[in-house]
Simulated assay, not measured.
Amino acid sequence: MRIGYVVDAGCDLPQSIIDQENVVVLPIAVRIGEQVINDSRQDVVSQQFLDSGIAKDAAEAETIPYTVEQISELFLTKLVVDYDYVMVQTITASRSPIYERCVQASFKILSEYHAPREAAGFATPFNMRVVDTGTLFTGQAVVAWEAIQLRHNGTSTQAIRNRIDRVIANTHGFLVTPDLYYIRNRGRAKGDRSVSLLSAALGTTLDIKPLLYANRGMTKPVAKLRGFEPACEKMLNYATRAVGQGLLTPVVSLAYGGDLDEMRNMPGYASLKQACLNNGVTLLESMMSLTGLINIGAGTLSVAFAQEGVFNFD
Rank of each mutant, 00 (worst) to 15 (best):
M1E: 15
G4W: 00
G10P: 04
I18W: 05
I32N: 03
E34S: 06
N38S: 15
N38T: 10
R41Q: 03
Q42A: 06
D43W: 11
V45A: 13
V45G: 07
S46N: 10
Q47E: 12
A55I: 00
A59H: 08
A61C: 09
I64S: 06
I64G: 10
T67D: 14
V68R: 09
E69Q: 09
I71K: 02
L74C: 03
D82W: 03
V86P: 09
V86Y: 03
M87H: 06
V88D: 08
S96F: 00
E100S: 15
A105Q: 04
I109M: 08
A119V: 04
A123L: 09
T124E: 14
N127F: 01
T133S: 12
L136A: 11
F137T: 05
T138N: 11
T138D: 09
A147M: 14
A147L: 07
I148G: 02
Q149H: 12
L150N: 05
L150I: 00
R151D: 13
H152A: 15
H152K: 12
N153G: 11
S156W: 08
Q158A: 04
N162S: 10
N170Q: 11
G173M: 09
P178Y: 06
D179E: 07
R184K: 12
R184G: 09
N185Y: 02
A189C: 04
G191M: 02
S194K: 10
S196A: 10
S199A: 13
A201I: 04
G203E: 13
A214G: 08
G227A: 08
C232E: 07
E233A: 10
K234R: 12
A239L: 06
V243D: 07
L247A: 05
T249A: 10
S253W: 03
Y256Q: 15
M263K: 15
R264V: 05
R264T: 00
N265G: 15
P267K: 09
P267I: 05
A270G: 03
K273S: 11
N279R: 15
V281Q: 06
M287L: 00
L301M: 13
L301A: 14
S302D: 14
A304Q: 05
G309H: 04
F313M: 08
D314R: 13
